[in-house]
Nucleic acid binder design. Structure first.
Length: 602
RNA sequence: GGUCCUGUGGUGCAGUUUGGAGUGCACGCCGGCCUGUCAAGCCGGAGGCCGCGGGUUCAAAUCCCGUCAGGACCGCCA
């Protein structure tokens, strides 16, 4: 049990539930808390009192009231979750009634007096009982959900993570700097949340999507190492691991630093976090995969490395060699033939396999398969390939009787990620991933540019401020598609925890990069004036990263949904069911900020 | 912007596939009994526009269309 916080002894209480042990027997104590449960025997009333220490920390004690005391009627008349202050004597429980499930189970408090501090209405859902409750209700009555142990525990772990991060990074010489919440809208990235200015009609602040430009400006300002547990705001759709609206990053940046320097610091930080907050196994240094390897071997830029099931490449073996046009023509059209083993899937329904083929079709890939039925290989490929070729496919993926082999033919990224999605889903369904392992991996060497499929135009694949590998020469001499960026992701158990980069601090290289993306220098100047100007007054080379604070906690706490590690989250559609946000405002408020609402056309 | 899943007393579910009386389970709520429970037990009771609107049908919780709400995913998230 963690140490209890200091106690203010006052008229409400002089002792906490979690403190009560056998050596308190005989003492008269005053406790305050919530009525967690009542067991009424007519001539005897048991009340479980839960105080703010919480059930998780053992803050639950049994009170006993007898009908000859006035306290009996007081407690008997209260609903669950009412708040009381009770005075009574700590007594040892008879040996046969000791409750080993309670930390305080050797004793109970014989109530002499009870004062009602507040009484509760009928509850919208059971608070104490460990039952499933719909998430809508949990969000609407978040304060009741917080009283239930698990969420409260995660919120307390969140605080622990925050102080651990601060202590560690401060100890490593990082300076915590707060950056503005009201700033300027930036043309890149997600949609901004806008805040209208009352002083300047028609002008707006924006909430920062990340303190990206500020942290780079801090580098120019001579701060050598910066960090912040930074709120980030993006007006974008949510996912299970992506909170709509707002989230937190452990934002950090280092001057005169290389990619390896950032990796070293982050490995120290992550190790401090995992050893301090988890019994899960991990090890530094973290392995590194290039983006290309990650896609080729795992079909994902955020692979879960806790299990194998690597993709096999059959392009060289089967491409151009068979009678099948879809295979035969693959190499010359620049397509790949990739295969994934799905353990034990030979007997899956036709619908399941057809579903795979449909998914493939949707992304412009041919999806086909083999079913390694012990009685004979089935599936469309079995009929079309020679026995030797079937053997090649099976051998490449390590297929065993009873498995299925999914095969995708198409453009490299699309064919691979299609199979990568199945790898991830099957890994989850089959329980292949060791839940006690944290498989960190650096994914490095992301491409600098990507090409629009339709127009053929090049654009930045990720952060336009990343330093291209090879600098000016690479931008000048290489095909844009083969320029790599000093851009990296930290991935753990299939979750993208952070993204970072060595920044491009050189205006000349920046101009060259923007030129490839079709932008003139005036575009940089008008879009990022502060950074552009600052970079003309001696910016140091710098690099950084921003691990997602909420996501780290999700992984540590084994939560599938990010709302489970946030005290007051928005729901999937970015509504706050508790506070009722967003909400209309008055005409007067709109006038103040010079806005008129135009309802969307029906 | 799109696809899919869900919506049944206060809560969590079953019933929907194959239309036939609001039929059921657990918890909670109200009342009664009960002196050792700890998910207390026993007896009784109240509580429902089956999310909402429209359609098909002799008949709709059930089938169809629309809509609203919650969730998962795609797009999106430099």
């Amino acid at each position: 049990m963690d140490a209890l916080p200091p106690l203010n002894v006052n008229r409400y209480r002089d002792t906490r539930c979690a403190e009560l042990r056998a050596d308190h027997v005989g003492r008269v104590v005053r406790l305050a808390g919530w009525i967690a449960a009542k067991r009424d025997h007519g001539g005897l009333l048991f009340v479980d009192l839960r105080d703010p220490t919480g059930v998780v920390a053992g803050g639950l004690v049994q009170l006993v009231a007898h009908p000859d005391q006035p306290a009996f009627a007081v407690l008997d008349g209260l609903r669950l979750e009412s708040v009381v202050s009770v005075t009574g004597r700590v007594v040892a429980r008879p040996a046969e009634t000791v409750n080993p499930k309670l930390a305080t189970g050797e004793v109970e408090v014989a109530v002499e007096a009870a004062e009602v501090l507040s009484s509760a209405d009928i509850l919208p859902f059971p608070v104490e009982r460990d039952s499933e409750v719909g998430e809508e209700n949990r969000l609407r009555y978040r304060y009741l959900d917080l009283r239930r142990g698990p969420l409260a525990d995660r919120i307390s772990r969140r605080a622990q993570l925050a102080s651990l991060v601060r202590a560690h990074l401060s100890g490593r010489g990082f300076l915590e700097v707060q950056t503005p919440i009201l700033t300027a809208s930036s043309p890149e990235g997600a949609r901004d949340f806008l805040v209208p200015s009352s002083q300047y009609p028609g002008e707006f602040y924006a909430l920062p999507q990340a303190p990206q430009q500020f942290k780079q400006l801090l580098m120019v300002g001579g701060i050598e190492r910066y960090f912040q547990i930074a709120p980030c705001f993006r007006d974008e759709a949510s996912r299970a691991d992506r909170s709509p609206g707002e989230f937190y990053q452990i934002d950090l940046e280092m001057a005169f630093a290389t990619q390896d320097d950032v990796f070293d610091e982050v490995e120290l930080l992550m190790t401090a976090i995992t050893t301090g907050m988890s019994s899960k196994v991990t090890g530094a240094p973290f392995p590194r995969l290039t983006f290309a390897e990650a896609v080729d071997r795992f079909g994902s830029d955020k692979p879960d490395l806790r299990f194998g099931l690597e993709l096999a490449d059959l392009t060289a073996d089967l491409g151009g060699r068979t009678e099948l046009p879809m295979f035969a023509g693959a190499p010359e059209s620049g397509h790949v033939i990739r295969a994934l083993r799905v353990p034990g899937a030979a007997e899956r329904s036709r619908k399941w396999f057809d579903g795979f083929a449909d998914e493939a079709k949707k992304v412009g890939v041919i999806g086909t398969w083999l079913q390694l039925d012990p009685a004979g290989t089935k599936g469309p490929l079995a009929r079309r390939l020679t026995e030797e070729e079937v053997g090649q496919v099976v051998g490449a993926v390590g297929g065993e009787p009873g498995d299925a082999v999914l095969v995708a033919v198409g453009p490299r990224l699309k064919a691979s990620t299609l199979l990568g999605d199945h790898r991830r889903r099957n890994g989850r369904e089959l329980g292949l991933a060791d839940p006690n392992h944290l498989a960190f991996v650096w994914v490095v060497d992301f491409p600098m540019f990507e090409q629009d499929e339709v127009t053929g135009a090049w654009d930045f694949a990720h952060n336009p401020f990343s330093m291209p590998q090879g600098g000016l020469e690479a931008l000048r001499d290489l095909d844009p598609g083969s320029v790599l960026a000093y851009q990296y992701d930290l991935v753990c158990n299939g979750v993208e925890l952070s993204s970072g980069a060595v920044r491009n601090h050189r205006p000349d290289i920046m101009e060259a990069a923007f030129a490839i993306a079709g932008y003139g220098p005036e575009r940089i100047r008008s879009s990022f004036p502060a950074l552009w100007n600052a970079f003309h007054y001696g910016p140091p080379p710098h690099a950084g990263i921003a691990p997602g604070f909420d996501r780290i906690l999700m992984v540590l706490e084994d939560q599938a949904n990010i709302r489970e590690v946030i005290a007051f989250p928005l729901n999937q559609s970015a509504r706050d069911l508790l506070m009722g946000a967003p909400s209309p405002v008055t005409e007067a408020q709109l006038r103040d900020v010079h806005l008129k609402v135009v309802p969307p056309a029906p």
